[in-house]
Design a binder for these strands. Structure first.
Lengths: 286, 286
DNA sequence: AAAATAGTGTCTTTGAGACAGTATACT
DNA sequence: AGTATACTGTCTCAAAGACACTATTTT
């Protein structure tokens, strides 16, 4: 949503000053068909933004990044970070830029199997109901980012207030209270968050994506606590250990051990090359 | 993509004549932040379209609906159907409208568990790379539609040429030939088609969506041939029968039988209420 | 010693894959 | 009769769930 554009004001011509737009301007619909210049007002006026569902696991709870809105509408309410897509920018690039501005995280290019510590970033869905922003017609391409637990939300950019909020409380409030409640998320962000959380919950079943919530090196117990936090369940540590260590390419031992959880020292692993888990790690039934 | 807008010209103010736009117009970015009118040219000029990947199974092959472009760019090339999102229209509504114009199919509201013969329609992904349409910046929200085998592609609307094309050939051409080949799909539609096909292939694994390819009443053998066509494999008829009839809520016997495939008469079923298959019907390994 | 976490092993049940065999139509 | 499709049953193997037991640390 458009919500957060106030924190990232769009500056026309910022990286292509002087009207040298790559996109040409046409006069009319019929002229457009013939490849001739046209009047942009002949098309419905759309603004295109990206919104981010940034998820992490903090103290055994799934949390998402929210920013407090400084302006109307929804002034003082929490919202997902986001901003305008620029003139010469692809949608994924806009999302990666917003993520970096908000958290300092580099986005992990999904095509390159990079072993770096970049965050996972993928497109989630697009929201464009006519009334979702009361000011104008805004189409928002929501993205989902998964990150390890970060030191602290760094108030970079022009966001006046940023924090990690537990997803469960946020969604409980969204459904329990009326949309006008000051606790509810701005715009349709509760729906976007809900869709993002469901995507993450289902995707860690059949992919190795849960490692995106972990630091570069982690133990089996830490990975299990990620699954438990994201799904909101408890898993049998023994069966979990057998499953993840028995899936080829999922985990690679680094040789080191750690005792940061107390108890017997645990082997350290890093994410293996496998991206798809077959057979999948199924969520326990309800 | 914007490709097909020529077939569905956008008529400004068509359903809200006389400048009574619901979306207000603002003067500048800073003014926008304060809720004041602004100049739309202060934002990057985006056109928003919907494109459709309409899939069906015809004569044991997965096919998709393509239309021939009458204008530049990509004149004479095949493209996915699509068109502009209107001023007061939600994204899904725009996709449903295009689907009805192109095929006469009513879209099946995913929220309502309707037993009607509407087609399944869901959002797929959004494509917005700056250069994807050489004329202007266009963001396309692609949708995926699944339909039973239709009588014949009805050349409704203003499409001059419409046909069902086998997906396999279309994608083979897209990757084998250079993008400038006259057999290749226009714009980035090969990518969109590929993403849509992969979505369908994976989604029939864990949902009852394969029934969307079938008429209201169908046999187990017909449903199996749907899986075989979509996945491009052959399945053991006996194990398949055991699996689908043993999954509660997947299939409901109607009492009738048919012999339209030759051989022993088969029981007729309709889709049950279950939408998620648990455990899933896994694709055979490669 | 007690408690906490890590890791291995064993038993049972579920379900997928392979395939034998029977039933009922059409040619 | 021969063939095509529909349907049932049986055997085997892979993997998930439940849970006993051992190992190594901190308090």
């Amino acid at each position: 949503m458009p919500d957060t554009e106030t924190r990232k004001p769009f500056r026309p011509g910022e990286e292509g000053e002087g009207g040298e737009r790559t996109t040409r301007v046409y006069r009319q619909k019929d002229d457009y068909d013939r490849g001739m210049p046209y009047d942009p007002s002949a098309f419905p006026p759309f603004a295109v933004t990206v919104d981010l569902v940034v998820l992490t696991v903090r103290s055994h709870a799934l949390c998402t990044l929210v920013v407090r809105r400084g302006e109307e509408p929804f002034q003082g309410r929490w919202a997902l970070p986001g901003g305008f897509v620029r003139d010469d920018e692809d949608l994924g690039a806009a999302a990666a830029r917003e993520l970096a501005e908000e958290t300092g995280l580099r986005a992990h290019d999904p095509s390159a199997p990079s072993p770096d510590n970049g965050a996972h970033l993928e497109q989630l869905a697009t929201y464009g109901a006519p009334g979702r922003d009361p000011r104008m017609r805004v189409v928002s391409v929501a993205h989902l980012a998964l990150a390890p637990d970060l030191p602290a939300p760094r108030p970079g950019g022009d966001a006046n207030s940023v924090r990690w909020a537990p997803v469960e409380k946020l969604l409980d409030q969204a459904w329990a209270t009326d949309p006008g409640s000051p606790d509810a998320l701005a715009f349709d962000h509760a729906q976007i968050l809900s869709d993002g959380v469901e995507r993450a919950r289902s995707k860690i079943e059949y992919s190795s994506l849960a490692t995106a919530f972990c630091p570069p090196e982690f133990t089996v117990g830490e990975l299990r606590r990620v699954y438990e936090a994201v799904w909101g369940v408890t898993l049998d540590p023994r069966n979990f250990h057998r499953k993840v260590t028995g899936t080829p390419g999922f985990l690679v031992p680094t040789g080191g051990t750690t005792t940061r959880q107390g108890g017997r020292p645990a082997q350290l692993f890093r994410a293996g090359g496998a991206t798809l888990l077959n057979p999948p790690m199924l969520r326990p039934e309800v």
